[in-house]
Design a protein around this nucleic acid. Sequence first.
RNA 1: GGAUCGGUGGUGUAGCCCGGUUAACACGUCUCCCUGUCACGGAGAAGAUCGAGGGUUCGAAUCCCUUCCGAUCCGCCA
Length: 467
Amino acid sequence: MQRTWIEETTNLVGKSVRLNGWAHRIRKMGDKLVFVDLRDGSGIAQVVFYKPDLAPDVCAKVDELKPEYVLEVEGVVQKRGEKQVNTDLATGTIEIGAKTVSILNTSQTPPFPIDQDTSSVGESVRLKYRYLDLRTQRMQNHLRLRSKWVQACREYLFGQRFVEIETPLLTKATPEGSRDFVVPSRLQPGKFFALPQSPQQYKQLLMCSGFERYFQTARAMRDEDLRADRGFEHTQVDIEMSFVEREDVMRMVEEMITHAAEKLGFTIREKPFPLISYQDAMVKYGADKFDMRSEEEKAKGVLAYAWVIDFPFFERDIKTGKWTFTHNPFSNPLPEYLEDHLAGRNIEKILTSQYDLVCNGFESGGGSIRAHKPEVLEATYKIMGYDQKEIESSIGHMLEAFRYGAPPHGGIGLGVERNLMNLTGEAALREVVAFPMTASGVTSVMDAPSKLDDATLQELCIKTCEK
RNA sequence: GGAUCGGUGGUGUAGCCCGGUUAACACGUCUCCCUGUCACGGAGAAGAUCGAGGGUUCGAAUCCCUUCCGAUCCGCCA
């Protein structure tokens, strides 16, 4: 018999079905009647074993059942009596009258209950047994919502002529930005790859390649200390478009975000998203990310998106006194500042084409119109104090690509975790990530990082130091 | 790198300030009873060298020192 999903059983009253899943809860009512709440990837249904009607070997198996045993149940979908309807359960109008049961696997008693929310269980226990934590309703909901949200973004993008392209994970260390995660090269001993902090340069190269509209759900890695809302690695819906101006990208992203949020049943506070300048945001909210919702809207889970624009391109580095970029060195300045930018004049006044999408107090995404003329990017690096040689070695490949008919382009990266935190109302990143890390950077279940044996280190030409 | 909070049966907590001999409670587990439960109910039992190491003391979960682990924040994070 073909397997039926639990969710579908409500439409199958009177039919024989085969169900697969886990024993969620078991209630043994004396010697004759046993209720098992069976859980699969679609939901939970009550299975009734009435032992006087069952074969002796089936009864013996029913006696053995414990929580989290993996079962195959065959039985008939029955309408529940009026007094027995459970309105808390999606399948509460029916139950499965079991004929047979197979125990596909047994289970040790889980370290914490699977049938309850685990938010009060200690982090280290949850992470050690992450695969069990993920069985709980809340964690299932979060990861399923995450999948649906990304799916909705994809759906929208595919409808707008976007092409999904993957960019390399093993790539080049860049001097600016955050600390790189680094991977030793065996074939080039003593040299290292860096894991990408963002697909920034590759996606701009794809614009130079004529794809015009690119996206990917990209992993990005940064070796900086962790926070509740920040991990070593995160995923972004990474987008880049050719022949666009700032407002074109913003409009497109706004449509996509709206499509995704509303498809998943969320309410957006204000459409079109309000627009505020960095200056005004700092005056009004004291920050460039802010929460505009009332307490009531917070309780309802309303999403309050806003755009922040007109950021300064540069700021002084407190330590070195040099100019450094505030957001993204690959951005174009706003058109009215282009002349000053190229000349390196009035640097403190130059505004960038950067736009940040803010939602419920978090930065949900950020992007800009990029430099596509070599002289603009070069000017940015000159302002930051790079000499010709340093410019050549760090971004020479980009300058060269721009000399072969690079189209004007711009894009955005939307943090998947940040967006899911807003959708779920969770305050911690690890609640929307399948296998997150602890604050000290140790992975769940697998307990990485770990030591390498001497032979491996030797092959990689690496000496370790005692710290 | 810095600061703060925490670590007590499988899980979550109380006890710690003010040291005292059987470390308490809830959930879970095990045994028995129960035909309609859905957080089932009832009776009983087992289960903890109190994160680790050292010190003070007649005596340490409790006081002191060191250390490890977890959480949050600052620095850091285009």
